[in-house]
Write a protein that binds this DNA or RNA. Structure first.
Length: 713
DNA sequence: GAGCACTGC
């Protein structure tokens, strides 16, 4: 390439020579980070050093020449670096300084989380002594800070996927670095597969796969698969960058424990009395477990005599940022901090100074039933990789200890790695996404991890029933094409696109936005009774969806006041997010040429809304049974009603409902429906008729459909 | 009396 890029020689054995440009030391180093820290949960242990010193401290800086040499020679480079080695911040700067941004070409770095994209960009802009948004910028949903000068762009992986559907060749980029590839999220898996595909057309595009674990061999093999070029220009190179961690000693229980919470409690108390000082991190599986555990631990610590007190911050995503930040407070002298967390502490949040980890060995995971595609939250054993990740959290300060609440034999039986998300999620959104990007044969696509054919078939079934794909599996025009443009899963998208014909797009827009937030109500533990009463006042007999509409309307009527939210126990942060999402969706609808119409005050007002919901969620229909549970149409599953549902306020349960969210054994976000509507909105999905007719027709049809899938164009 | 891992467009 003759663009004036500096050419690097293959590094000799002494790769310790660092040749980075010397920047002037600044006294206000980290000032921008302070702003970021106040917003996000981030910790920088080197905050007091000058920026250049901080950069040189990072293990990756020793490998600068190696990285540049590899990227010059190979089209794909896999960098394995432990967390904190500096790869996410330094590699893009190495590349820019080496001329990879000539002609304003951009180095793109993708992150699985928004916070990471923002903080990394802020940090790198600071290191480059430039304003955020000039040379260094970021893009996330609902905005970003970039300009024409931006050559290092941090973004969420979802953003790059969106960008690919607008510009399939990604011409503005010279290098794309997919960070945290080891997490194996749907987005990172798709990105890697798509980039590999793209490299066959764009020979000049460089891809960096950045991973924290030794899955590198797998990534390498993937990028080399079926390469015919004998020049082996595409060969990925593996660089191993050490982090700064200490060994962790693992302890197991001798016998399986019947109650891991009790076992964890005993273990924490034993660590406290028998082990030297050092903070403890306890991994449990859910918010309730965490809260109950904390409460009990505080009780114990009060009773302990002649022993220093335990200082207990629960940590899970439902907490506000302020509450989460408490886990970062330094431990008062003579006390011992115990952080009780969900798996948020596995990846999203790193708590410094942990010397002991207590691991319950389980995790709550969203898993789709391949037969019907319904996703629910299941309690499953962790994988060995996840258990090791948890244990590793004890070795960041000094040599640590990890106590597992299961015997060693059980550990050996665990899966070595967590099943990639793409193999356990509902595939309809994935299929839709691939179709948008011009992947004609989604069944034969070169996945990083191949999903089950049965799951693909279920995905196609749903898309077909929704009218998004035709009999050949191609996107329909205009419905399928429009569904692709919306930042919503297919069922939600269908509801939204149908809302105009039901005359209720304003209402549906609100309900869908509200469905995206986790919990509209904020019920404090000390005022539960009072909160329940106010919550009840928002409730609507027809169900949760109209209740959500009610809450949002009241929020707007009260000028989006935080004070009002606190008084009536409505989640202020959540409602603000819902408003944001609503605006974004509204903009998409306008772009699609849809009219905003409201059914307010019209005859059959709530019926329109519920019919419209059924239009997308007809798979999630259930009938009330004598056993007090709701049964799906083919009796494959039955569910209890979630205790927080507005349905609980009714004297009598409705006979038929549609639900839009499933927990492990219960359904929530439920609305009453009339079974006659089902045939109207989804005439082909269910078999209507006597049991015998149905059984005969169904078996034959479905089998044929699955068999033909492998040949879908 | 009992309940909702974590992200993202």
């Amino acid at each position: 390439m003759s663009d004036g890029r500096i050419v690097f020689k293959k590094p000799s054995e002494d790769i310790d020579t660092v040749t980075s440009a010397v920047l002037e030391e600044r006294e206000d180093a980290g000032a921008v980070d302070d702003a970021a820290i106040s917003q996000n949960v981030v910790h920088n242990p080197y905050l007091t050093m000058s920026i250049q010193k901080q950069r040189n401290m990072l293990p990756i800086s020793k490998h600068k020449n190696q990285v540049l040499y590899a990227l010059q020679k190979y089209r794909t480079v896999v960098i394995v670096g432990e967390t904190g080695c500096g790869k996410s911040t330094q590699v893009p700067q190495f590349l820019m300084e080496a001329g990879w941004c000539a002609d304003k070409r951009v180095i793109g770095i993708t992150q699985p989380r928004r916070v990471a994209a923002v903080t990394l960009a802020t940090r790198v802009a600071d290191e480059q002594l430039c304003r955020l948004g000039s040379k260094v910028g970021f893009v996330v949903r609902f905005g970003g800070v970039t300009s024409d000068d931006t050559v290092i762009q941090y973004m969420t992986d979802g953003i790059l996927l969106r960008e690919m559907s607008a510009d399939p060749l990604l011409l503005k980029y010279s290098v794309i670095m997919v960070d945290e590839a080891h997490e194996r999220s749907v987005n990172t898996d798709l990105l890697l597969a798509l980039l590999r595909r793209l490299q066959k057309v764009r020979y000049d595009l460089r891809v960096i796969v950045s991973s924290a674990t030794l899955d590198a061999a797998y990534f390498r093999q993937f990028f080399e698969l079926n390469e015919t070029s004998d020049e082996s220009k595409n060969t990925a190179v593996i660089l191993s960058v050490e982090g700064s961690t200490y060994p962790v000693e693992i302890f197991y229980v001798e016998q399986p424990v019947p109650d891991y919470i009790k076992a964890a409690m005993t273990t924490v108390l034993r660590i406290h009395t028998k082990e030297s000082s050092g903070d403890i991190l306890v991994f449990l599986t859910g918010m309730d477990e965490v809260e109950a555990f904390c409460k009990e631990l505080i009780e114990y610590s009060k009773k302990l005599q002649n022993v220093d007190r335990l200082w207990v911050v629960p940590m899970y995503s439902g907490l506000t940022q302020r509450e989460q930040l408490r886990a970062f407070d330094s431990t008062p002298f003579g006390q011992r901090k115990v952080v009780v967390a969900t798996n948020i502490a596995e990846t999203s949040v790193t708590i410094p100074g942990i010397a002991y980890v207590v691991d319950c060995g389980f995790v709550k995971m969203r898993i789709a039933d391949p037969a019907n595609g319904i996703e629910s939250l299941m309690l499953v054993p962790v994988s060995q990789a996840a258990a090791d990740q948890r244990a590793g959290r004890a070795g960041r300060l000094r040599a640590g200890k990890c106590f597992r609440m299961y015997p060693e034999a059980e550990y050996k039986k665990l899966l070595t790695a967590t099943v990639p998300e793409i193999q356990r999620c509902h595939l309809a959104p994935v299929i839709l996404q691939l179709k948008t990007l011009g992947v004609a044969n989604v069944v034969k696509f070169h996945y990083l991890a191949r999903p089950r054919v049965k799951a693909l078939a279920t995905g196609f079934d749903l898309l077909h029933a929704l009218g998004a794909v035709d009999n050949e599996g191609a996107l329909t025009n205009p419905l399928g094409l429009k569904m692709c443009t919306l930042p919503l899963p297919p069922m939600h998208a269908k509801v939204l696109l149908s809302s105009e014909q039901f005359g209720c797009s304003e209402e549906i827009l609100t309900i869908l936005a509200m469905m995206q937030i986790q919990e509209p109500f904020d019920i404090p533990k000390n005022a539960r009774h009072n909160a329940e009463l106010t919550k009840r006042e928002f409730s609507v007999a027809e169900g949760d969806h109209l209740t959500l509409l009610n809450v949002y309307h009241s929020f707007i009527k009260n000028n989006k006041s935080q004070k009002w939210c606190n008084q009536v126990h409505v989640n202020f942060k959540g409602l603000c997010r819902a408003e944001n999402i609503r605006q974004q969706l509204k903009a998409y609808l306008k772009k699609n040429g849809m009219k905003m119409v409201s059914c307010k005050g019209l005859i059959g007002e709530t019926e329109r809304v519920r019919r419209c919901l059924l239009c997308g969620f007809f798979t999630n229909v259930a009938r009330y049974g004598h056993d007090g549970r709701f049964h799906t149409i083919y009796e494959t599953t039955s569910y209890a009603v979630y205790k927080g549902s507005a349905m609980m306020y009714r004297d009598k349960m409705p006979k038929w409902v549609v639900f839009t969210d499933v927990l492990q054994n219960s359904i929530r976000d439920i609305s009453e429906i009339d079974p006659d509507w089902i045939q109207e909105v989804a005439p082909n999905f269910y078999d209507f008729g006597t049991n015998r007719e149905v059984a005969a027709a169904r078996g034959a049809d479905r089998t044929r459909e699955y068999e033909s899938l492998a040949d879908l164009n």
